[in-house]
Simulated scan of single mutants.
Amino acid sequence: MPHTVRGVIARAKGQPTEVVNIVVPDPGPGEVIVDVASCGICHTDFHYREGGISDDFPFLLGHESAGYVSAVGAGVSNVKEGDFVILNWRAICGDCRACKRGEPWYCFATHNAAQKMTLEDGTELSAALGIGSLAEKTLVHSGQCTKVDEADPAVVGLLGCGVMAGIGAAINTGGVTRGKSVAVIGCGGVGTASVAGSRLAGASPIIAIDRDPRKLETAKELGATHTIDSSGLDEDGVVKAVQDLTGGFGADVVIDAVGRPETWRQAFYARDLAGTVVLVGVPTPEMELSVPLLDVFGRGGALKSSWYGDCLPDRDFPMLTDLYAQGRLPLEKFVSERIGLDDVEEAFDKMGRGEVLRSVVVF
């Protein structure tokens, strides 16, 4: 029978979130109910609240989660009741043109649950990124569950979005390997994860760039060998600072974790000839970019965007969880605070002020 649980919704654009009762139906074919153990507060949830993703209100927020499978629908074979899982928003289809050409990380037809969770009055909820896990239970497609060895949910749950996006931007998209030089522009959660991923891959130097000294200090803790405080620098000043730290050449890989035209241009010109630019920060719809086409031609290299760190959850989540368990990937440093379900609005405020890498709701 359906379950009534507490969850956080955004009812209308720009309005404060609400903690309300939601109804989670029994799982249908291919669906799973997960008892949520943790959920990180991500910028994407804030964008949903502000109407920056779509206008399909009301939204059930939350997507960066770990928990335990409590019920499975017909035909589910990849997980069973009791499994500890990290939720993901890339449940690959296996049949689209990307999957068939052996590039499932570009899957064009990822799966979500067919049924909708609702308010008690029957109003259907739009689940953030097809997950909706700022709730005590959530209904997802079985492919959105990645089984991993049990670990602290508040820590490994962050692999479900921001941390994976950052690590993947460096390793999967940017191709960072031992000895390459890396610069990361913007040291919030995703950018700092790019720093950690670059360290994991053996890059050197690793240059962290931000306007906030607190974020730069955290980036150093997670692997940055050098930092640049960009608060008093224009675009050319940032580029020169990176070149000064890389023998005058620029970095092999520059990751833009902000997603603004000016930071992308910094990344473009701060890379070495034939270097790689990775855009992982998310722009807003009105932003436009202007760069001389001759510079694009003349500098060579690769200009890439990274969507979810070009990850494959079944491949990457277990590996990164193992590295955390071995003490080789300090994921616990991303958890700034552990909060309750009623503290989400305050967490959004702290995120906006740059006071936290991640606030994590623990159930």
Rank of each mutant, 00 (worst) to 15 (best):
A91V: 10
K80M: 04
G51I: 13
F249T: 12
A302T: 14
L273H: 02
F46T: 11
D229S: 10
A257D: 15
G186R: 02
G223N: 08
V140M: 08
A151V: 05
Y308V: 05
P2Q: 13
R315L: 06
E81Q: 14
G162H: 05
L293H: 10
C107I: 03
A241N: 03
G189M: 03
T44R: 00
V8D: 14
G62P: 11
V242Y: 08
T17V: 15
G300N: 01
F249P: 04
V148A: 04
Y68Q: 04
K180Y: 07
T123C: 02
V278W: 03
L303M: 04
K350P: 07
G143K: 03
K100I: 09
A201P: 05
L139C: 03
I228A: 05
R358D: 06
P2C: 08
A193Q: 00
L273T: 06
L357Q: 14
I41L: 00
R49I: 05
G237L: 02
S133N: 12
A251K: 10
S290D: 08
E355T: 04
G67R: 08
F363T: 00
D310C: 11
E262D: 14
D210T: 00
G298H: 08
I131S: 01
D26F: 07
D295I: 07
P104G: 01
V280P: 00
V291R: 06
W264D: 01
T173L: 05
G30F: 06
V258S: 12
D26W: 06
S142Y: 11
R11V: 05
A241L: 06
R49A: 15
I86R: 02
P313C: 05
M164D: 08
S290Y: 14
I207S: 06
A169G: 11
A224E: 08
D95A: 10
G281I: 08
G130S: 02
G175L: 11
L323G: 10
A267N: 12
G275Q: 07
D212P: 09
S77P: 04
A169T: 02
R265S: 13
V190Q: 14
S230E: 12
G188Q: 12
V360F: 00
P283N: 12
T123V: 03
V335P: 05
T263M: 02
S194T: 11
V69G: 00
G132C: 04
Q144K: 09
I22Q: 08
V361E: 03
S231T: 04
I9W: 05
A74F: 04
P25K: 06
L323P: 06
E217C: 00
V362P: 06
V5D: 02
A37F: 09
L87P: 14
D314Y: 04
S65L: 06
G7H: 01
G28N: 12
G354V: 10
P318A: 11
R97E: 15
V32A: 07
E120R: 09
I86M: 03
I171N: 01
H63E: 05
G281A: 09
M117V: 15
D244T: 01
R101F: 03
L357H: 05
S359D: 03
K220M: 09
S65P: 12
L159Y: 08
F46Y: 13
W307P: 07
F46K: 10
E262M: 12
E221K: 15
F59T: 07
D272V: 14
P318C: 11
D256P: 13
R211N: 13
K100E: 09
G7N: 05
V190I: 15
E235V: 14
D212W: 09
V8E: 14
S290G: 06
A91C: 10
L279W: 03
